[in-house]
Design a protein around this nucleic acid. Structure first.
Lengths: 342, 342
DNA sequence: GCGGATACCGAAAAGGTTTTCGGCCTCTTT
DNA sequence: AAAGAGGCCGAAAACCTTTTCGGTATCCGC
């Protein structure tokens, strides 16, 4: 398979070239290539052959110009650096890729000016729709500009209720986490969370409380809010063991926090999971599977969330636009740190 | 600031609309908006006003169709899920964003078929160039299709020497790492690396050896190859301490490995950095700063690598195409795990 | 007041594709 | 053999912008 040297400067073949080579008009060539009827099988064959010979690739710009549809969407993240944008982006890219849609990626880096700039650029490129990916689940202001294409907000919902937003169901995630711990036979459950300014932290705590209530249990101590960091997990676990030595399970705000908690437990001689079960959030593979024991964690199904956003945008493009906040369910990934107490 | 409800279905304003509203021809409107001369200041004012009133945004497709340039590039990753694509992608997006270039993101997921598919789609969209981002520094086959736009390979170089590739300088990175350890007063240095099938691992080992040679030192034991995982770091560190108890520094193949090494050292009662210095690779923030003590690590400057690739593509687009493999330097980020032995 | 220069504006073409519609040819039916 | 029907093909318009080039108006100097 000889690799043809790239013929720089040679104009790409156009439909006219194909038509000329096949000895037909451009109209017929177009119809032949697009599988429309009203073209003789033999003629179609000639055209296809000519197209292959010239390695013809139709100019999407011309097509888009005419059709009023470009088959492109904009993916506007407010912060790529975080851990959550990437899986969402992957899910969306996956869903769109299958549908022949190309994705423009833009990163606003949390800057509103840059965001407007990107939106303008995307609109001038006539994207068919827009997905706005937030960096936390806290609601965000809607796009500043009037946008005449459908917009789906992912992860961070729009503050405007008439917008369509898709977010993880963190309340239910908290509930499922506690239910798992209860199913593992734990009854003295503590909650070391992350930054209290994140709605994800509050939602999970609310869900956890609901599950405890339903089981007739009480949380051990208060929900400990702090930072999404290992250091906080270590420190908070130390305080927890001092004040509530009888704890038999710790639900953590993130896998990072959980790693810190695991460290402190080991130092204090508590066995995991025999003495204390530990559960993380996010199912961040490198942290969860690198831990000793491996960490049970709640996965927010972000890739699925990205796919859901893509599907929603698809529908909004050629049907009616949905409204309101939709949720994607999380799931518990069980590993060694919560194995049922024998 | 009332947010205008998105006027779905209303055709976006075109240049003709602007011209009509301003009472001039489309030609004049175009010239006015693009700042060409030969248009009266007052007329220009009228046009600008009309454009603003209609919130006119020029159709990039029409412009690209005419100009033969679209102002778009394709970013083709072979695996987004890994840790290395994202920063490269961010750097490239950053460099292009400033230059008014929009980026199509495609993820081939290590599938050659999907890759060709994406390349075809990008070419049909008439991208001005392509960046191909690999998932490891191992050389990869060049793109299968004949591509008539410039291509820059980032992270994973192309196997074809006539292609332009930009990769991190892992040999020098290994050298710098060992030089740092020596500067910290260490003389009994071991190397626990990752998977031996990665050229990055071999390159770093080669650079490390060169630095040791230059200092007249010998590596403690053999380079230990294994996996890029915490578990391997723990296990390898155990074997190392058994066999070479006098070691005073461990250079690790990745931050994950280093975390495992730190764990084992703590368990064995070795103080870090007093007894043993530990150094990681990748400068993966969540691992490096969450460690106790925080981890000195080598940063591959991936974001800079992405920017460099973008700049190289820029140049290739409107000048001549560079060739061969270019490198981006790494840098040592010093943290607590290698503080100089008092 | 007139020739010419200059400043400004507009008509038209180009870029590549799709679609509509009219026209031609062939085949069938009576 | 004539009429009608149906299958196949091509000309042309449409999408929107930029650029070129020719034309008109204005202004200057004489």
């Amino acid at each position: 398979m000889a690799r043809t040297p790239a013929p720089r400067g040679t104009r790409a073949a156009t439909l006219s070239d194909v038509a000329r080579l096949a000895g037909v008009s451009v109209a017929t060539a177009s119809k032949a290539l697009n599988g429309r009827n009203h073209v003789h099988a033999q003629t179609r064959e000639r055209v296809l052959e000519a197209a292959a010979q010239l390695s013809f690739s139709p100019n999407s710009l011309a097509r888009g110009l005419l059709a009023g549809r470009t088959g492109t969407v904009g993916l506007l993240t407010s912060d790529l650096v975080g851990r959550f944008s990437l899986p969402i982006l992957m899910g969306a890219e996956d869903a769109f890729g299958a549908g022949q849609v190309s994705v423009f990626l833009c990163d606003a880096r949390g800057d509103a000016i840059r965001e407007r700039h990107h939106v303008q650029a995307l609109l001038s490129r006539r994207v068919d729709g827009l997905i706005v990916v937030g960096s936390s689940t806290n609601p965000r202001p809607p796009l500043a500009d009037a946008v005449d294409v459908p917009v789906v907000y992912a992860y961070a919902p729009s503050e405007a209720p008439e917008d369509l937003s898709i977010v993880p169901d963190n309340v239910n995630a908290g509930r499922m986490a506690v239910e798992h711990l209860i199913a593992c036979g734990r009854t003295r459950i503590a909650h070391i969370s992350g930054d209290r300014h994140y709605s994800a932290a509050l939602d999970r705590a609310a869900g956890a409380q609901a599950a405890l209530d339903a089981a007739g249990l009480e949380l051990v101590g208060e929900v400990a809010y702090g930072a999404w960091e290992e250091g906080w997990g270590r420190a908070a676990a130390g305080m927890l063991l001092d004040r509530e030595p009888e704890v038999d399970a710790v639900l953590c705000g993130s896998d990072q926090v959980a790693r810190g908690v695991l460290d402190t437990l080991r130092e204090r001689g508590r066995r995991v999971p025999e003495d204390v079960a530990v559960m993380g959030f996010d199912n961040w593979d490198v942290l969860a599977t690198g831990a000793r024991p491996q960490l049970t964690s709640v996965d927010q199904n972000l890739e699925e969330l990205g796919r859901a956003a893509a599907r929603a945008l698809f529908e909004a493009i050629d049907a009616e636009h949905g409204r309101g906040v939709h949720t994607v369910q999380c799931r518990v990934v069980v590993r060694g740190s919560t194995a049922s107490a024998g």
